[in-house]
Design a protein around this nucleic acid. Structure first.
Length: 300
DNA sequence: TAACACCATCAGGTTCTCAT
DNA sequence: ATGAGAACCTGATGGTGTTA
C-alpha cells in the first residue's frame, strides 16, 4: 500500500530541489525527509532519485512519480475542499479577469445566486496567471475569463466556453455620427480607446483595423474597461465592447453604437480545476450562461 | 589547495498512536 | 496498562561545492 505521507515528502523534495528545502517547507528535519523518501523507494522497489554529488536528480521513474503525485494531491485537495464545504455554508470563490466586463460577469453569476441553497459569493480580481494558479490550488472554484487557460501553461484546469458575442464599436453621439458617415473608412483618423494588451479584444480590434486598411489613431489604452467607457462617454474616442453589453453601455454611458463587427467574435470561458463541475454554483453559471448572453444581445 | 559551508544520510533514542 | 510500530528527533559523519 502506497504511503501517502511518504509520497507527499517525495513530491516536496522533487519540487523544491532538495531534502533541506523540503524539510524547511514541511517544518521537519532533513533526516526525517531523507529517511521517508528512502523508505518510499524501498517499498516501491525503484529509485526515484539519482544521488549526483550532493544533489538529488530525478530518475525516469521519479519524473513519472512526480507527475502522477501532482494529480493525486490535486484530487486530494479537491476531496478535502468539497468535504469541508459540504459541512459549511456554501461559498463560491470566483476569479474574474479585468477583461471581462463587470455587468457581463454579474449576468453570468446571477444564476448561482438564484439557487435554492443560499450561497455566499466571493469575487477576486487578479492577473489571469495568478487566478489560474489560485484555481489550481483550489483557492478558487472557477475563473471567468475571455482567454482560455493555455494548454501549455502547466496548470491543471479545464476550459468551458460560456458563449460568444460579436464585438461592437461605441462612441459619444457626435463622434458616433462622424464614424457612421461612410463606415468603416470614416474611422481613419478618428480617436480610438482600446483595452490593455492582455485583453483578447486588444489584438482582435487592431487586427480588424489592419484588415480594413485603416490606421487606428490610438489615444488611450485601459486595463479597466469601466475607465475606458468613461473616457468614451466624454467623447475622447471610439471604444469596443461586446454587443451583449450594448444596451447597458448606451443607457448608462449615454453613448451610441456605431456598428457591430460580426467578423470579430469574443468568447467567454469558465475555467474549473476539475473536469466535472461538482459545485452547484459553478454548475448553475455554466448552465445559465448561453441563455443569459442571448437575452443580453436581444435587449440591444 | 586548504578551509569552510552545505547537503544527504546513518545510528540511536524519544514520542506518539493504536490495537489488544 | 502495555507492547509494537511509525514518525520524528539529535548528534555525528562523510562527500561535494565554493572561495580565498
Amino acid at each position: 500500500m502506497l504511503n501517502y505521507k511518504q509520497l507527499y515528502y517525495f513530491w516536496h523534495v522533487a519540487r523544491s530541489g532538495g531534502v533541506t528545502r523540503a524539510a524547511q517547507q514541511l517544518h521537519l528535519t532533513p533526516q526525517t525527509i531523507s529517511g521517508q523518501v528512502a523508505e518510499l523507494e524501498q517499498s516501491l522497489g525503484v529509485a526515484l532519485f539519482n544521488r549526483v554529488g550532493r544533489r538529488l536528480v530525478l530518475t525516469a521513474a521519479g519524473r513519472q512519480a512526480l507527475e502522477q503525485a501532482g494529480a493525486i494531491f490535486s484530487l486530494g485537495a479537491e476531496l478535502e475542499h468539497s468535504l469541508r464545504h459540504a459541512s459549511q455554508e456554501l461559498t463560491m470563490q470566483v476569479g474574474i479577469t479585468a477583461s471581462v466586463p463587470r455587468t457581463l460577469a454579474f449576468e453570468l453569476l446571477a444564476p448561482a445566486m438564484a439557487l435554492a441553497t443560499p450561497l455566499r459569493l466571493i469575487c477576486h480580481e487578479e492577473r489571469p496567471d495568478q487566478l489560474f494558479s489560485e484555481l489550481a490550488r483550489h483557492k478558487l472554484d472557477m475563473v471567468l475569463t475571455d482567454r482560455p487557460l493555455p494548454p501549455d501553461s502547466g496548470i491543471r484546469g479545464y476550459n468551458h466556453e460560456l458563449g460568444r458575442s460579436p464585438l461592437a464599436l461605441f462612441a459619444s453621439p457626435a463622434l458616433a455620427a462622424q464614424a457612421r458617415k461612410g463606415f468603416p473608412a470614416a474611422l481613419e483618423g478618428l480617436p480610438v480607446l482600446i483595452p490593455g494588451e492582455k485583453s483578447v479584444t486588444h489584438d482582435r480590434l487592431l487586427a480588424w483595423y489592419h484588415q480594413q486598411g485603416i490606421h487606428p489613431h490610438l489615444v488611450g489604452q485601459f486595463d479597466d474597461s469601466a475607465l475606458m467607457k468613461s473616457f468614451g462617454k466624454a467623447g475622447m474616442g471610439i471604444f469596443p465592447a461586446p454587443l451583449a453589453m450594448g444596451e447597458e453601455i448606451t443607457r448608462v454611458y449615454g453613448v451610441e453604437r456605431i456598428a457591430t463587427l460580426p467578423e470579430v467574435t469574443l468568447s467567454y470561458y469558465l475555467v474549473s480545476a476539475g473536469r466535472h463541475l461538482s459545485h452547484p454554483g459553478v454548475k448553475a453559471v455554466m448552465e445559465g450562461a448561453s441563455q443569459r448572453l442571448a437575452a443580453l444581445e436581444n435587449k440591444k
